[in-house]
Amino acid sequence: MATEFIESVSKPAVPIIDLVVSEEDRVAIAKRHRRRRASIAIRYVFLTFLAAIILFPIYITIVNSLLTPLQIAARPPFFFPTKPTWGAYSDAWNAGHMSLYLMNSVIVTVLIVTGQIVTATCAAYAFAFLEFPLKRTLFIIFLATLMVPFEVTVITNLTTVVNLGWYNSYAGLAAPFMATGFGAFLLRQAFLGVPRDLRDAAALDGYGHWRFMVRVAVPLARPAMAALAVFSFLGAWNQYLWPLIVTKDSRYRTLQIGLRQLRATSLDQVNVTFAGVVIAALPLIILLVIFQKQLVRGLTAGAVKG
């Protein structure tokens, strides 16, 4: 009796449950597994198809940048560079000034991303952790700016930038985008997820708001920070209208404008334009590969939290 009891107790729990499964259940479970595997397979086929649709133009762009203009014009088209020529890249890089434009884009983007993260962090922290008059009203105004398309404010921004003497400068390119309601909103949500007790504990431990923000709130909001960084990077990198109107010479022109010029000046050399496009997209692609996880998490974070 006693030993039986001890044996049954000392057996691991899972096999005991397993023993209870009858033969019919086994069949049913196996069937379910098969059905699930089939549905996963279908899903993969579908997703692969979608991926192909999205990747095809990118692939063609890369292929065309490696062909000669004659080959690009040929019918039927080339889907594979039989004799890749890299000349288009050096043409775009040197003659097309893509090196300068790339540098300008990097500078402007870094300014904008840094600016957005710093201002969004401070504003979001205030909305999440501080009490001040008109807090709600101010937050609603912040949110309202999300509804205003950039085009609406272009003229006002241009006037302001010109009056500040920032026309045709990095400051003029970056300043209007260094603070956004979206960033403040995104990070505020993340900061609201930081337990109040942590703030209280830190206050007792002698940490003021600034050090609490830097040492606790920001590290805990890292996923949202990364998402904001990626979004603002994409936005800044792909800008076209603003860099076009706020600069007057190629010294401060960014990649997207440069591409446009490349197309205008090398009409007979389509492959150079394609090479320029690849150069412009490369930093984005590298960044997306590195920050893939954060981007997805940033996109789904709002969905899960409701």
């Binding site: 337990p195 007790d197 942590l198 209280d200 504990a201 007792l204 606790v216 590290p219 805990l220």
Partner: peptide, 13 residues
């Protein structure tokens, strides 16, 4: 003074 919170208030990171 030092305080111990019901939630413990440990810094998760």
């Amino acid at each position: 003074i030092a305080m111990v919170f019901q939630s413990y208030a440990l810094y998760p990171h």
